[in-house]
């Protein structure tokens, strides 16, 4: 039975169902409960945006507020994962990875390989990313390419409530470290979500709109903006195929290449800066493996190579929008 939920509610439901199903699932992070040790109410916040609200009442000690010490608690989640638990750690903003990257990059990501296949680290790091909330340079980045670069990590970025629930359940049950990116501009996005538990396999991109003229390969919030552009372009007679990568590691190379071969014209849309990014990675993939099918140069629509600015007029320019995406598509579609 499906109901309409927001992404925020879908994530909460996934955590709730997995915690109910498996007592080894614990949640930790800054204010995931909120109120620990204070004299007021517990579960005062339930996460900075209320994503984990209500879980403390059901799961008590398996919901752990942490000091603001990301190295210690992300590392503790990694150590607990290697010791039999399935921790879901919340790194409040993905920008904060700067203070705890070692525990993700040198520890969690490497245990399986470095220990000869004799270690499992089933940890999930849930983390907010993305611009658009005037949160400025240290709370607005989209650093998924940094994590995608690291062998051993899996990187997931849902854009619908259905995907958020199914991919998070998969992340929790997965026996590798998973970085689960939640765009702060998408929490209120609504969609149908089944009540029952289900999981979505990693490495399966989603063709969210079919079309034969131009492929728009995208991820995160940019999928919604790409769909918006595609709608406008359809009115102009340009039919876009929009691909939501859903996971950048593992990457569904087949779906990306099939789409590129189908249309021969490709625009890649990425909210992050352009160097060494998902956009350049997808572009290289297509150039290497679908070169003969291309009828136009691949076009990248990305943020500029700058930090995220604060002022609205600047931040709005920073993020690719439907108009910029449409302009790129028209150019690619018209290339002869």
């Amino acid at each position: 039975m499906a109901r309409t939920l927001t992404i925020l509610q879908a994530i909460n439901e996934a955590l709730d169902q997995e915690m109910a199903r498996d007592s080894s699932v614990i949640v930790m992070g800054e204010d995931v409960v909120g109120g620990s040790g204070a004299e007021g109410e517990m579960d005062a916040w339930g996460g900075p945006l209320g994503v984990t609200k209500g879980l403390y009442g059901k799961y008590g000690d398996r919901m752990l507020d942490t000091p603001i010490t990301e190295s210690a608690f992300i590392g503790a989640a990694v150590g607990a994962a290697a010791s039999g638990l399935r921790p879901v750690a919340e790194l409040m903003f993905s920008d904060f990875v700067g203070v705890c990257f070692d525990q993700i990059y040198n520890q969690a990501a490497k245990f399986r390989y470095m220990f000869g296949g004799r270690a499992e680290t089933p940890v999930v790091v849930r983390t907010m990313y993305g611009a658009g909330l005037r949160a400025a340079a240290q709370h607005s980045q989209s650093p998924y390419s940094i994590f995608t670069h690291v062998p051993g990590l899996k990187c997931v970025m849902p854009v619908t409530p259905y995907d958020a629930k199914g991919l998070l359940i998969q992340a929790i049950r997965d026996n590798d470290p998973v970085i689960f990116f939640e765009h702060k501009g998408l929490y209120e996005t609504e969609g149908e979500v089944p009540e029952q538990s289900y999981s979505i396999p990693f490495g399966e991109a989603n063709v969210v709109r079919e079309g034969n003229d131009v492929s728009i390969i995208s991820l995160g919030l940019m999928v919604h903006r790409s769909l918006e552009a595609a709608e406008t372009l359809a009115g102009e007679g340009i039919q876009c195929e929009v691909v939501d990568l859903r996971t950048t590691s593992p990457l569904d190379e087949d779906t990306v290449l099939e789409s590129a071969e189908n249309t021969g014209r490709v625009v890649v849309v990425d909210e992050a800066p352009p160097r060494c990014s998902i956009a350049t990675d997808i572009s290289a993939l297509i150039a290497q493996h679908a070169f003969d099918a291309l009828e136009a140069p691949i076009s990248l629509v990305t943020a500029p190579h700058t930090p995220v600015p604060f002022a609205g007029v600047l931040e709005d320019q920073y993020m690719p929008d439907a108009a910029r995406i449409a302009t790129a598509v028209r150019s690619v579609a018209g290339y002869a």
Partner: peptide
Amino acid sequence: ADLDAGMMGANGIVGGGPPLICGAALA
């Protein structure tokens, strides 16, 4: 490393181990 022997790894990162042990102790 040998997790079956309770040995969570020598570590090439100075200070890499203490957070992991917080996790083992938490588990």
